[in-house]
Simulated assay, not measured.
Amino acid sequence: MTDSPLHEDQLWLVRHGETEWSASGRHTSTTDLPLTEAGEAGARALVGALAGVEFAQVLTSPRQRARRTAELAGFGHAQTDGDLAEWDYGDYEGLTTPQIQETVPGWTIWSHPSPGGESATEVAARLDRIVAKARAVDGKTLVFAHGHSLRALTARWLGLDVSEGRLFVLDTSTLSVLGVDRGAQVVRRWNVMP
């Protein structure tokens, strides 16, 4: 696979719009929260950045916050893919990092397990399937998903361990683009507010 001079970007990432829990820093995986008013506005703001771009496939997490973001951004036809769901935090669902660190000092999703939730190995396996789907199509793939899952997906795209997702801070209602440059998987744009 080679790049054209115009940079054939391969994998476009959109983090869903703001929810009540994302605004307050609460870990949200299986809790299916709607977007806030600001989250809906942020999703609508993505329309211009995505307009006119041709995508070979458009995928979304099954969670309503991702599906609604896709819809408001002009991609109501996005195919639901469970592999894009947020990292399952298990017993830490709904808690903030400082709350978790009261009992597990130094805890982060990147460095410690989440009791009752997914392991980094499990997350890597499902996000590797997304990478494979993106590489299998001729053209661009657009995905709508979540903060930690997209950060982990980026690490996997780059051939890194899931834990290296810690290096890629990602805000709500942002666009990022991963691609290929001279045979290497690269980050072309990151955390762009429309």
Results as ranks from 00 to 15, higher is better:
L11P: 00
A132N: 10
L95E: 07
S163H: 14
H16R: 10
L158R: 11
A155T: 15
R156I: 10
L46S: 04
A49G: 09
V177A: 14
D88H: 13
M1E: 08
E20H: 13
Q79P: 04
V192K: 08
S173M: 06
T60N: 03
T154F: 07
M193T: 15
R63N: 06
V14Y: 01
L158P: 03
E8P: 14
H112K: 08
V187Q: 09
V162F: 12
D161P: 07
A125P: 04
R189M: 12
L46E: 03
Q101V: 00
G179E: 01
L72Q: 06
A184F: 11
E118Y: 06
V177L: 13
S29Y: 02
H146W: 09
G82N: 03
W12G: 01
G117R: 04
Q64V: 13
V169E: 14
V143L: 11
T60F: 01
T69E: 06
T172Y: 05
P98E: 09
Q57C: 08
V192H: 10
H27T: 04
T96H: 13
S22W: 02
V47R: 15
A43M: 13
M193E: 11
G116I: 08
L84D: 04
A41P: 00
G82H: 05
R166N: 07
D91F: 02
L72K: 13
D88I: 03
L167H: 10
G74T: 05
M193P: 06
P115V: 08
V192E: 15
S173V: 05
P113Y: 11
V169R: 15
A134V: 00
Q79W: 02
Q99G: 01
A51E: 03
R188C: 05
I100M: 08
Q64N: 02
G76E: 05
A49R: 15
D3T: 15
A145V: 03
P34E: 01
G165C: 07
V58I: 14
H146Y: 07
D128F: 02
A78C: 02
A132E: 09
P194I: 10
S163Q: 10
F75Q: 08
A23L: 13
M1C: 13
Q101I: 10
K140F: 00
G117C: 09
R189Q: 12
D171M: 13
E86G: 09
L142W: 01
D128Y: 00
A41C: 01
D81Q: 12
L35E: 03
G139Q: 08
K140I: 00
G42W: 00
I100N: 01
W12Y: 15
E102M: 14
G74W: 01
G74A: 10
T36N: 11
L150V: 02
H148G: 06
R129E: 04
R156N: 06
V137S: 05
R44V: 07
E164C: 11
W190F: 05
D83L: 04
D128W: 15
T30R: 10
S61V: 02
A136I: 03
L142S: 01
L13E: 00
L84Y: 02
G39D: 11
S22N: 04
G42Q: 13
A124W: 02
V169A: 15
K140S: 12
H112C: 13
Q79M: 11
K140T: 05
S111H: 14
A184K: 14
G82E: 10
A136F: 05
L158A: 06
V131Q: 01
R189D: 06
A66H: 08
T97S: 11
